[in-house]
Design a protein around this nucleic acid. Structure first.
Lengths: 243, 243
DNA sequence: TTTAACTAATTTGTATTATAATATTTTTAT
DNA sequence: ATAAAAATATTATAATACAAATTAGTTAAA
């Protein structure tokens, strides 16, 4: 079992089992081994196993009942907005298709969040956006500046500025989406400046209290990433057929 | 402790503690009592307490470390898209403001989902939408027909038809939002027909493969509910000031 | 006096064992 | 053959013990 830093036993087992469920090692048909067998398998006590089972149940992955054992719940009850579940999902499945789903969600959430931020006009929150933007611009100007972290902060700051808890809650989701995005887009050297400029336009619209404009600019930005990914998917399929 | 049907001990305790955390009985400053005290308080074994703690930790509400005890995590790490957490949140806080946040999320998600459903054009999934719509229309025609359940099914079917797992995952969220909505909108007798008609237009757009139109119609529908709620909030505040 | 090392106390983490509750399977009786 | 009863397997709950980690306090050394 991969020993992860600072995780106690039950958390480690939760990780292992979570991954195994999501990558299909355990299915709704097969179910999980009994607690007793899991104890043997991992060489740990029943206490630890049970706590792991409870955590996975809390995330919607499994349920357990006396005499029936531990069953895997159908995938559509898994809590995909749970950070761990999302991580396991990305580790196990080819990420290009998942990434497209991510972008669809971002395309729904982020433009609305930007519009709300513009309409709300919370000074402090907007200042946070400005701060992230400055870091982006600094990274764009520097020859080997790293724009990635600032980019993440920018998007997170907008979710926060929307004043809607449910939007802000998606920050990890969007952070993950952006991270996966990066892996598929190795941008040209010069493009950093262009990215920062686009982000600036979103910021400007929010600062000026122009909801529609903020929304449209954000939509444009994410849609660019989307068309990039769709092209990549098309390429891959073409290659696959060619084989 | 309120005895709920079919919930085992640790699940019941999870419920009690979850509510107590979200309604502010336990705060980030105060933290939770020690495991030992919780055992006493509820008159149960440490096993049950620990399993409850693990479940709450899995939902992002708490964390526990040796010697430090059980601490309440800041509210912005709570997994609001977890059905239980959402339920506790609604039970504890005045729902009008939360409802507005719900509608903002719906306004983000559902129009996009409708557009995707129209673009995707999955026959079987669209048939499900049609089925829900028929039930709505039947309820609208009957003098005391109950349109509520069919309404829920309609929206859920569209999320499913989007083909995006992350949208479909929000079905419980949207179901909850609609339920709260209903409590605040006691619609006139005649309006059932109007509601069914509006839903029909969304369906038609999806069936005809018109993403933009589906999106706009869905936006219109939710926006109506939003303006209703905003008016209600304004009324309430006016009354509050008048006092 | 200050600082370092050690000691003690508290609380969660893990293990073990035992019994209860629940649901399935097998056996038995009619 | 069917219904009832018993045996069985598995999770649910409980109780106890010790380990590990962290904090606070205390002592010893510089």
């Amino acid at each position: 079992m991969a020993r992860i830093e600072n995780l106690n036993l039950s958390q480690q087992v939760t990780n292992e089992l979570g991954k195994a469920i999501i990558n299909g090692h355990y299915t709704a048909e097969s179910g999980l081994p009994t607690e007793a067998k899991l104890c043997e398998e991992y060489g740990i006590s029943r206490t630890a196993v049970r706590e792991a089972v409870k955590m996975l149940a809390a995330k919607g992955l499994i349920s357990s009942r006396p005499r029936q054992g531990i069953r895997v719940e159908p995938a559509n009850t898994w809590n995909l907005y749970d950070t761990s579940v999302l991580k396991w999902l990305l580790e196990s499945s080819p990420s290009l298709h998942v990434l497209k789903e991510f972008l669809q969600v971002r395309l729904a959430i982020e433009p609305q969040a930007a519009a709300l931020a513009a309409r709300r006009g919370d000074k402090a929150a907007i200042a946070e956006i400005a701060l992230a933007l400055e870091n982006m611009q600094a990274a764009a100007d520097a020859p080997d500046g790293e724009i990635h972290e600032a980019d993440l902060s920018f998007h997170t700051a907008i979710l926060f500025a929307s004043g809607n808890r449910f939007f802000f809650q998606l920050r990890d989701f969007i952070r993950t989406a952006l991270n996966v995005s990066i892996q598929h887009t190795t941008p040209a050297k010069g493009s950093k400046k262009a990215i920062a400029d686009e982000h600036f336009k979103v910021y400007q619209a929010i600062l000026n209290g122009e909801p529609e404009r903020a929304k449209n600019m954000m939509t444009y930005m994410i849609d660019e990433a989307m068309s990039f990914i769709e092209k990549e998917i098309a390429d891959k399929e073409a290659k696959h057929i060619a084989k």
